[in-house]
Simulated scan of single mutants.
Amino acid sequence: MLAAGGPIMAQERHLFLVVCFVMLFVIGPVLLLTPLFAWYYRLSNTKSVYRPEWAFNWPLEGFIWIPPIVIVMVLGLFLWNDTHTLDPYKPLVSDKPATRIQAVALDWKWLFIYPDAGVATVNQMVFPADRPVHLDITSGTVMQSLLLPRLAGQIYAMAGMTTELNLAADHPGDFSGENVQYSGDGFPHEHFPVRALAPGDYAAWLAAARADPGRLDLAGYKRLAAAREVSGPRLFGTVAPDLFHGILDQTMPGVRSADMTMKGMK
């Protein structure tokens, strides 16, 4: 989080630092007053006052209640604003169209489909660094959670449902992604490289991906999903049209993704 690689994580880092600063007003008095009280009321201090009948004190009550109330109000103000600003479904403002990627969580690997380019990757996500990225996310197995630590926060992937995530990279670079929801034996190995490329490099990568002889259709997807683990990244130069919705229909027959998005759930 502290080494933000994009605008979303930069905003989350700012919120984290604000919360840490505000919480100093909670932990600071505790750290200072605890040893002070222990020292003042030590057994050898005969000047400390013993008040067995003491029960109430207005200044002390104000000190106990007013600062926490102010702290909660300040945190609530920041969190309310940033919760809406950092809504994962909210598209990023840009003069360039977003790169669309459809992510599918499997045992124990990630499938990334590029519907506009007609290619797919396994255990590798690649996108251009000069524009936003829009992710549609689902699971072909148990519930998992996608985390791109330096680019965006985590969001869940659930079978038969679609969640969304918008992000961008500030510059070309290598990042990482992983599943952070325990999902069985292969969970410790379910992480993958994330590459943000310069426009020219991304165009060259797309050309190389399209030249790959691999083809992914619904039958191929079922074989891929049945494989317990896949070693290293894989490419598919051809992807069947609307494969993502076909995967959704496999886990929730007859229900389309538009009917089962987390944004529309009550």
Score class of each variant (00 low, 15 high):
Ala196Pro: 02
Gly214Asp: 04
His191Asp: 11
Pro149Ser: 07
Leu206Val: 03
Val180Ala: 03
Pro213Arg: 12
Asn179Glu: 09
Asn179Pro: 05
Arg223Ser: 09
Glu178Trp: 13
Asn166Glu: 08
Ala152Ile: 04
Ala208Val: 09
Ala204Glu: 08
Met161Val: 05
Leu148Pro: 01
Ala159Leu: 05
Val180Cys: 00
Arg215Val: 10
Thr162Ile: 06
Met161Leu: 09
Gly160Asp: 06
Glu190Val: 08
Leu216Lys: 01
His189Thr: 13
Ala211Val: 13
Arg223Gln: 13
Tyr156Ser: 12
Ile155Ser: 14
Glu164Met: 11
Ala159Tyr: 04
Tyr221Cys: 08
Asp174Trp: 00
Glu164Asn: 07
Asp170Phe: 11
Arg210Ile: 08
Asn179Cys: 12
Arg215Leu: 07
Ala196Gly: 01
Met158Gln: 13
Gly173Phe: 07
Val180Gly: 01
Leu165Trp: 10
Ala203Leu: 04
Gly186Arg: 13
Ala207Lys: 14
Ala209Gly: 04
Trp205Pro: 06
Ala209Val: 02
Leu151Phe: 01
Ala209His: 03
Leu197Cys: 12
Gly160Leu: 08
Ala152Thr: 03
Leu151Asp: 00
Arg195Thr: 01
Met158Glu: 15
His171Leu: 09
Tyr182Leu: 14
Thr162Pro: 00
Asn166Leu: 06
Ala219Thr: 14
Gly186Val: 15
Ser183Tyr: 07
Leu147Glu: 04
Thr162Cys: 02
Leu146Trp: 14
Asp201Ile: 02
Leu147Lys: 06
Ala168Glu: 15
Ala207Glu: 09
Thr163Ser: 15
Gln181Ile: 12
